[in-house]
């Protein structure tokens, strides 16, 4: 069951990812990207990492992609984007070369990989749960976590300040 689900989601992920690239309309690209995030979240759930799945959706699908779409809508107003991309020979050659290189790298990387076989006896199914995640973050990765937290706070304060400046008042 799990395995077939995995293959289903994996193929769906790949399909959506390919559609992101080959869609002519950027809005469709964004929508397929969102679908890709969903399928990836499905993978997380299969891995019993519900927290990551939810956060993935909230952050990527719920916020970042909204911004993408937002920007696209602004650019796209009334204009037909399809066909404006120039497809001359040089672009095609560059694309082929880059794609080939990427393929080589992936093959090279995967050549030596052996699939890990988790031992069912010692496998902890709760590893992806919120509690464990929290414990790891607050013990092993305490310093980076705190640094990131400070970074986020700074950026949020910055955002608020930027918002304030627009009103014409002087800040600082």
């Amino acid at each position: 069951m799990t395995e077939s689900l995995f293959f289903f989601f994996a193929s769906l992920t790949l399909l959506c990812a390919i559609m992101v690239v080959i869609s002519k309309n950027p809005v469709f690209s964004v929508i397929f990207l969102i679908l890709t995030f969903f399928t990836i979240s499905a993978h997380y759930i299969l891995l019993n990492a519900q927290f990551l799945a939810a956060v993935n959706i909230i952050v990527y699908a719920g916020a970042i992609m909204v911004l993408f779409l937002f920007v696209l809508m602004f650019i796209n107003t009334g204009k037909n984007v399809e066909g404006t991309l120039k497809r001359n020979v040089l672009v095609k050659i560059a694309g082929t070369v880059a794609g080939g290189l990427l393929f080589t790298v992936v093959v090279a990387a995967l050549k030596d990989v052996t699939l890990g076989n988790p031992d069912p006896a010692t496998y902890d199914s709760q590893v992806g749960m919120v509690e464990n995640l929290g414990k790891v973050l607050f013990t092993k990765y305490m310093l980076p976590f705190q640094l990131v937290a400070v970074l986020f706070l700074v950026s949020m304060v910055g955002a608020v300040m930027i918002g304030k400046r627009e009103t014409g008042e002087q800040n600082f």
Partner: peptide, 19 residues
């Protein structure tokens, strides 16, 4: 066990319909 996040995530998707 992540009920709140689920709701939060789903609600945040609602805007796509409007957009």
């Amino acid at each position: 066990n992540i009920g709140i996040l689920y709701i939060f995530g789903v609600v945040s998707l609602g805007v796509y319909g409007l957009m």
